[in-house]
């Protein structure tokens, strides 16, 4: 078995919440609260979750755009925390990010050529001629052409802007791309073309992706494995097929049941969650328990469930699953879902 390209162990990122007249730290916003994750070479791993689940912070912390509070990020066998500034910069060549809003991710004052060339300049790659060559190569790779190079970002459509963002991210020949909701700002028709571009690029360039999205349909289409996040933790992790066919965690089940379907009828299998995602649920017991639609047991209120293997390649953080108890979730139409 090959070594993973990226391994994340026990990653935590707490943001201090300041309050009172002295602006002391009164609490922490636990955006990421202990995440384990690995990505194999060539693999596309998805991170699903609603807003506030911390999935974006995971991406940024992996790139060390914000410093993790705790935990390790191991990329190509090296712990990023142990690297000095120069080594970290070298590592960044191999790990890049594509942002959700392509317009805001491109400096409006730079031409497309400058935008794509900038990473090469910063890392002092090649002379002017070689860089020009590379820029042309990249723009072609993402399906645009030389004529587009001298224009400014606002002259392009959202989809084209995202292609430029991808070209910029690919300039340094990375191995891993963190895709932070790369399609959610785009029209549905454009989404598909970007997803296909990403799949093509993976084949051509031997890339791995961490694909962060709230859109389960998109994740299902592109990912090999998916982790579902809730309040800074992964609550379920499985291969895409397994996750969609045998979801085990009550949160995953509710999410899947709520996914929009192309039909006019009301979705009879939908499970409606009570309440909102809230930091106050972190502390005692399972952090999903205040909203959990399943029949809970006492342990749910007292112990935080760990993310354990339920079966080969499928990990779940739920006491009920761990103890082989039925979930007994009631859907909109009154059906009872046991999880079997």
């Amino acid at each position: 078995m090959t070594d993973p390209l990226l391994e994340v162990r026990g990653l935590k990122k707490y943001f201090p919440v300041r309050g009172g007249p002295l602006r002391r730290v009164v609490a922490y916003n636990k955006a990421v609260d202990g995440i384990d994750l690995s990505i194999m070479p060539g693999e596309i791993v998805g991170l699903a979750g609603e807003s506030g689940s911390g999935k974006t912070t995971v991406g940024r912390t992996i790139l060390l755009l914000t410093k993790p509070t705790e935990g390790k990020v191991i990329f190509e066998g090296r712990d990023l925390a142990s690297l000095n500034a120069r080594e970290l910069n070298r590592t960044r060549e191999r790990m890049q990010i594509v942002f959700q809003n392509p317009f805001s991710a491109l400096n409006p004052r730079m031409t497309v050529r400058t935008l794509i060339e900038e990473p090469l300049l910063i890392h002092k790659m090649g002379n002017a001629k070689e860089r020009d060559q590379r820029v042309r190569e990249l723009i072609a790779l993402v399906g645009l052409n030389d004529e587009h190079l001298n224009r400014y970002p606002h002259e392009f459509s959202g989809g084209q802007q995202q292609r430029i963002g991808i070209a910029r991210a690919l300039a340094l020949n990375p191995k891993l791309l963190i895709l932070d909701e790369p399609t959610s700002a785009l029209d549905v028709s454009v989404q598909a073309t970007i997803l296909n571009l990403l799949l093509d690029l993976r084949e051509k360039l031997d890339l791995s992706y961490l694909f962060i999205s709230h859109d389960l349909g998109v994740l299902r289409y592109i990912c090999d494995r998916i982790g579902v996040m809730y309040l800074g933790r992964i609550v379920e992790m499985a291969s895409t097929q397994e996750l969609f066919e045998k979801p085990q965690h009550p949160y995953t089940i509710s999410l899947l049941s709520a996914a929009p379907r192309p039909t006019l009828q009301q979705n009879r299998h939908e499970i409606i969650l009570q309440g909102e995602i809230s930091q106050s649920a972190i502390g005692q017991g399972c952090r999903f328990s205040p909203r959990c639609p399943a029949t809970q047991i006492d342990t749910c209120k007292t112990d935080e469930p760990s993310l354990d293997e339920w079966r080969e390649g499928h990990r779940v953080a739920c006491h009920l699953t761990h103890q082989n108890l039925p979930l007994n979730i009631v859907t909109v139409s009154g059906e009872i879902y046991t999880g079997e």
Binding site: L65, E93, Q96, I97, S104, A105, N107, P119, I122
Partner: peptide
Amino acid sequence: EQDFIESARAVGAS
């Protein structure tokens, strides 16, 4: 707060 600042940092800009 704009992403392009973050993006510059991600590609290693000082």
